[in-house]
């Protein structure tokens, strides 16, 4: 079985700070990590490899330093890694990103046919969840989003059955290979890297492809040119004009503070009291 897992390198948003004056993101010193959602996709792919044998290729589009993210994936057990990197990719929105990744996957498929493609549910920076569906449409493969469980893969019969999270329930879907799965978070737990894989991660060559290597001919479809969306403004959230009306427990008794709060809430929101009474009486 040959599986391609798409991973993105993202800034660790837990550590991102916004400059209080300029309202720009302060990236200096913020470590770059593998998009956490993509690890659920990678682990699921590795489990299928454990079961069926074959290979897991990790694919990333990004700047040269994104190689670190790919090596991290090798340390978890991915077979090999490809970094698609080219200045002409800069400024890509999701449409241009899916175009470039789909081209690279087609190219990978020429070396060895691809049975399954995985992506994460979404990233933690762009956060759109649009790249997975985009790749699937461009490759014309079956799209399975928000997959919570892979029920069964029949490699010889070329069929796959999955559970998909939907609003208010779970869909049981069956389709044919190849398909693209966007994996839901929390569905598995990433294995520990073995010593052997960690050593391999240091040595294993990460293949670098520029746009020509990735088989991209139409440059009007990539980077800023290939992106229909235009970012017109970036700004920080506006602080609320008035601060909270404060009460300090030490200044008066807890009872007084609570009674005072109740009265304030119910006098400023009179319907709330009626509705609460109604709900409790029902």
């Amino acid at each position: 079985m040959h599986i391609v897992v798409c991973i993105k390198q993202v800034p660790d948003s837990a550590q991102i700070r916004v400059h209080p004056v300029t309202n720009t993101i302060m990236r200096q010193g913020v470590p770059a990590i593998v998009n956490p959602y993509d690890l659920f996709a990678l682990e699921e792919a590795l489990r299928l490899k454990d079961q069926f044998g074959g290979r897991v290729t990790v694919l990333c589009m990004g700047p040269p330093q994104a190689e670190d993210a790919l090596r991290k994936c090798i340390s978890f057990g991915a077979t090999d890694a490809i970094l698609v990197t080219d200045r002409s990719f800069a400024g890509a929105d999701t449409l241009a990103t899916s175009y470039a990744l789909a081209a690279a996957i087609r190219k990978i498929g020429q070396e060895q046919a691809v049975d399954l493609i995985f992506t994460g549910k979404q990233t933690i920076d762009g956060d759109t969840a649009q790249v997975g569906p985009g790749i699937a449409k461009r490759l014309g493969v079956n799209l399975l989003t928000y997959v919570s469980r892979i029920v069964e893969v029949d490699l010889d019969g070329r069929r796959i059955r999955v559970e998909r999270r939907a609003e208010g329930g779970v869909q049981l879907l069956e389709t044919t290979l190849p398909s693209l799965i966007t994996m839901l978070e929390g569905t598995n737990e990433m294995r520990f890297a073995t010593m052997a894989d960690m050593l391999r991660a240091g040595r294993c060559p990460v293949r670098r492809w520029n746009k020509d290597d990735a088989g991209i001919e139409d440059v009007s479809k990539i980077g800023l040119k290939g992106s229909p969306t235009v970012v017109s403004k970036v700004f920080g959230p506006t602080p609320r004009a008035t601060k909270a009306e404060m009460q300090v427990v030490a200044d008066s008794s807890v009872n007084d503070v609570c009674l005072n709060l109740l009265q304030k809430i119910f006098t400023t929101h009179p319907t709330l009291e009626e509705e609460t009474v109604e709900r409790l009486s029902a």
Partner: peptide
Amino acid sequence: ATTMGRDLAGSVATTLGTGLTAD
């Protein structure tokens, strides 16, 4: 931006080749 809407929006935008702004 539900599991249905995001699945469909991403697919339709790519098929039409137009821009899609999320969330």
